[in-house]
């Protein structure tokens, strides 16, 4: 079962990398496909970080415009398409939150309610399975680690802000966030690096 899931994951990654190649060739239909595949998760992440529909829409739009104009910046030697897109969305959402103080008072009302949303139904079966696994893995983290990781990831707080919010020393906050993330990696248990060659070694200028 694990192998089957991994095969599906690998196949999706290959498809997504192929889409990026087509986008580099200015194929707008490939953007449509990428949008169909990622707009929901990107919008959901942006909404979780910004807490507002209009800002989440802005983030999604900026991500796709960035992909269209700078698809060549995607470096398959450094990661997958999904990790690149989610990193772009998270950076843009956090930038928005930091610029627009009115969106929310950061480090005070970060919403960590991850289980409740009015339309929490994704029509992508693979992603639903993946989502369940990630949420289950999060629940297995010690509460202190989980809270720290969620504040850093969804709240976009720096480790200094996490330390302030939780009233813990900076070093403790760093350790909780980083150890929590490493533990999550282990819990999700499908380390790609154990199966594949060194990607950076094949990088070209």
């Amino acid at each position: 079962m694990q192998d089957r899931n991994q095969e599906t994951t690998d196949a999706r990654r290959a498809e997504e990398a192929a889409l990026l190649l087509r986008i580099r060739e200015r194929d707008q239909a490939a953007v449509e496909e990428l949008y169909a595949r990622f707009s929901g998760p990107l919008y959901s992440l942006a909404y979780q970080v910004t807490g507002a529909d209009r800002y989440a829409q802005d983030v999604v739009q900026e991500v796709f415009v960035a992909v269209w104009r700078d698809a060549a910046r995607f470096d398959p030697a450094r990661g997958t398409v999904s990790s690149w897109l989610f990193a772009l969305a998270r950076h843009k959402a956090i930038d928005l939150v930091r610029k627009e103080a009115g969106i929310r008072r950061r480090s005070v009302d970060v919403d960590l309610t991850l289980e409740m949303a009015p339309d929490d139904v994704d029509d992508d079966a693979w992603r639903n399975i993946r989502r369940d696994r990630v949420r289950a893995a999060l629940q297995q983290l010690p509460e202190a680690q989980r809270t720290s990781v969620e504040l850093a990831f969804f709240g976009g707080l720096t480790h200094v802000e996490v330390a302030e919010k939780l009233d813990i020393p900076l070093g403790t906050a760093k350790t909780r966030i980083r150890t929590g993330l490493l533990r999550l990696r282990d819990l999700l248990g499908d380390s790609v690096s154990e199966r594949e060659p060194d990607r950076w070694a094949t990088e070209t200028s």
Partner: peptide, 22 residues
């Protein structure tokens, strides 16, 4: 390799956000 894995873990973490239809 660890950097690659953790970038993927962070991408997975994004899926934990409650799903919202755009």
């Amino acid at each position: 390799d660890t950097a690659w894995d953790l970038d993927e873990t962070v991408a997975d973490l994004a899926l934990a956000a409650p799903y919202r239809v755009p």
